[in-house]
Simulated scan of single mutants.
Amino acid sequence: EANFTQYLLEQVSDFKSKYSIRLYELLIKYRDVGNSKKFEIVELRSKLGLEDNEYKLNAVFKRDVLDKAIKEIGNKTDIQIKYEQFKEGRVISHILFKIGKKKDKKSKVGKDMNTIDMFADMTIKQALMFGDKLSRDTAFQNHYKANVGESVEDYSERIATMLMDGFYVKEWIQYLENVGFVPTRLSE
């Protein structure tokens, strides 16, 4: 615990924006998973410490709070953050964050170009779709059970979050192929 706290303090000590610190603290627990949960805009604003009268317009909120915080986090820490917006009608209602460790500039020399690429990034929408399909698949349910008291939506979202990690794509490939997933081959 002491090392984790020290690491966290080292990461946020250079931040200029209070929103960067709050967003970092909110999202760092999802670093190893790859995705956050879907945050309602109202919930996210509250967790960032915004009052109802601050940054009322979503465009201003995104520009002055989210985008600046994400840029500062990307520049000063070992993680990168992207986000996807979800709408209800014309209004943005939810935001899902994708968190990843900064990649080392390593060469791809030595990879077999005919090997199925199990670690190709699934888009968030693909992960959500296949998470939903797997959560309804009986064979998969027998292999990977929902937690006690977990709703179908939460179970599906948890599976989708795990699918952002190539390990689980490889682990669950037989179930994924049964629900329509087609692995891609590396292109030259």
Score class of each variant (00 low, 15 high):
residue 25 E to N: 14
residue 163 L to S: 02
residue 101 K to A: 07
residue 103 K to L: 12
residue 10 E to Q: 12
residue 88 E to S: 08
residue 17 S to W: 08
residue 55 Y to H: 14
residue 164 M to G: 14
residue 150 E to N: 00
residue 145 K to V: 02
residue 33 V to Q: 14
residue 78 D to L: 10
residue 111 K to S: 09
residue 39 F to Q: 06
residue 5 T to H: 10
residue 104 D to V: 07
residue 42 V to G: 02
residue 44 L to R: 03
residue 99 I to H: 00
residue 134 L to C: 03
residue 80 Q to K: 15
residue 92 I to P: 02
residue 28 I to G: 05
residue 73 I to V: 06
residue 66 L to D: 05
residue 45 R to F: 03
residue 137 D to G: 05
residue 154 D to W: 00
residue 128 L to T: 00
residue 187 S to L: 15
residue 184 T to A: 13
residue 140 F to T: 00
residue 72 E to Y: 06
residue 23 L to S: 02
residue 32 D to I: 11
residue 48 L to Y: 07
residue 86 F to D: 04
residue 147 N to K: 13
residue 137 D to A: 06
residue 7 Y to G: 09
residue 185 R to G: 10
residue 63 R to F: 05
residue 120 A to C: 07
residue 76 K to F: 10
residue 173 I to S: 03
residue 30 Y to H: 12
residue 140 F to E: 00
residue 178 N to C: 05
residue 178 N to K: 15
residue 168 Y to M: 05
residue 5 T to D: 13
residue 184 T to H: 11
residue 18 K to V: 08
residue 169 V to Q: 01
residue 53 N to W: 15
residue 136 R to C: 10
residue 103 K to M: 11
residue 61 F to M: 02
residue 101 K to C: 02
residue 147 N to L: 15
residue 99 I to K: 00
residue 69 A to W: 01
residue 79 I to W: 03
residue 42 V to L: 12
residue 174 Q to S: 14
residue 100 G to I: 06
residue 59 A to Q: 15
residue 8 L to S: 13
residue 28 I to D: 03
residue 76 K to Q: 12
residue 74 G to N: 08
residue 53 N to H: 14
residue 120 A to Q: 13
residue 131 G to M: 03
residue 65 V to Q: 01
residue 61 F to R: 02
residue 152 V to N: 12
residue 111 K to G: 00
residue 25 E to Q: 13
residue 120 A to V: 10
residue 84 E to L: 15
residue 39 F to G: 04
residue 145 K to T: 03
residue 75 N to I: 05
residue 109 V to F: 10
residue 18 K to Y: 07
residue 102 K to T: 02
residue 183 P to M: 06
residue 102 K to C: 01
residue 4 F to P: 06
residue 136 R to P: 03
residue 127 A to C: 07
residue 48 L to S: 04
residue 28 I to E: 06
residue 150 E to G: 01
residue 170 K to L: 04
residue 143 H to Q: 14
residue 141 Q to A: 07
residue 126 Q to T: 09
residue 172 W to F: 08
residue 65 V to F: 02
residue 137 D to N: 15
residue 96 L to S: 13
residue 188 E to A: 14
residue 181 F to L: 00
residue 143 H to G: 04
residue 137 D to F: 14
residue 33 V to W: 06
residue 104 D to A: 11
residue 44 L to F: 06
residue 108 K to Q: 13
residue 102 K to G: 05
residue 36 S to Q: 01
